[in-house]
Design a protein around this nucleic acid. Sequence first.
DNA 1: AGTCCACAGGAAGGGCAGGCGA
DNA 2: TCGCCTGCCCTTCCTGTGGACT
Length: 402
Amino acid sequence: MVQHTLRDMFSSYVQKQGAFKDKNVLSHNYVPDVTFHREQQTKALAEILSPVLRGLEVSNCFLYGKTGTGKTVVAMNVTSELERTAKSVGKNLKVLYVNCKMKRVSDTEYRLLAELCRMLGREVPPTGLPTDAVYAMFYEAVESVGGSVMLVLDEIDALVSKIGDEILYNLTRMNQRLAGTKVSMIGISNSVSFIEALDPRVKSALSEEEIIFQPYNSMQLKDILTQRADLAFAPSAIKPGVIEKCAALAAQEHGDARKALDLLRIAGEIAERNGSPAVGIEHVDIAEDKLDTDRMVEIVRSQPKQSLAVLAAVIKLIDSKREGIQTGDVFTLYAEMCSRAGLKVLTQRRTSDLIAELDMLGVITTSVISKGRYGRTREIRMVLPPPVIEKIRSILRESYLL
DNA sequence: AGTCCACAGGAAGGGCAGGCGA
DNA sequence: TCGCCTGCCCTTCCTGTGGACT
């Protein structure tokens, strides 16, 4: 009988392990070896970069497409394979990958250069040196590599919108200054229009070659999810229709593979927490709600106090069941709430901008209407689902605004 | 047709924090 | 360390506007 209870224990333990085999496979950082439906882009990039294996100069290249369309994965796969091959044929190749959006690591000219220096084994103090000194160190470090250096700048649009395109201009001109080492750049951007806004010299240098990443459709997302799910979940831990549902939901939203994987991961976590052995469609539904709610809560939480005060005034007016809430009403209540809370009262002009910003973030919905004799104003509504509004309320309460 | 309301939203500039460079 | 620069938030001042009312 002892045998029996042990077996029960173990099998219930196995069941408690839940659906996951390796959750890491679904995380944003995981780079799969196989990239589905990106063969064309992979091949194109490989062809552009392969001259490096003969020690020849390589064109700069620009990859663009929306979030979750596989740009980073393709770039990483191709460059790491290239690095491996170069090593095996005795060529010097160093690939430097930087995500330019990393706060406090690579979001200024100095930090980015310092980070690149560090990757090449040169320690740079986090602050203190003049930027041209860091440039000099970087040039010297690159020179010492002595073969080819490939810079992969991910989210390059974020960098440029923050610090301008001069750094790109300097980087694209490195080859003219260096004798021993050839430098090439791969820029990755979510925004297609970004390149149009660049200095023409940078633009022509950076976009010698361009590769476009179209959004995935739901069939393609399904393939991607199936492959990842095989690695991430225990066998038969996913009920029929789950993958299709995740794929369809993500396809609706500009074919974002990252969102599809998030949905699957969160659905898996929910199933695990509920103690169910397999992920079902009902878990995906909850996951979708959770993803939307989390996103909105994150947006609201990151708002400055004044913006939250305006939002609090809007919610209070909605609570009092007023129809047709307009800017003037919000401003009056906002001013009153601020003076009660000891907060500085901003002008109506500024409040009007804050309302417009909240609208842009999707927290509230507004439309400019004219009430004839009674003026022209914004009519403000809230169309978020009640659970999300409830969460927002609790954030406002935490900040003593409600 | 003209008036007028209640704002929208553009332009310019002040003030401040934080980063940069000597 | 300290002046300088930059970007951001905000104010002030302003013109523009759709349609009910006269």
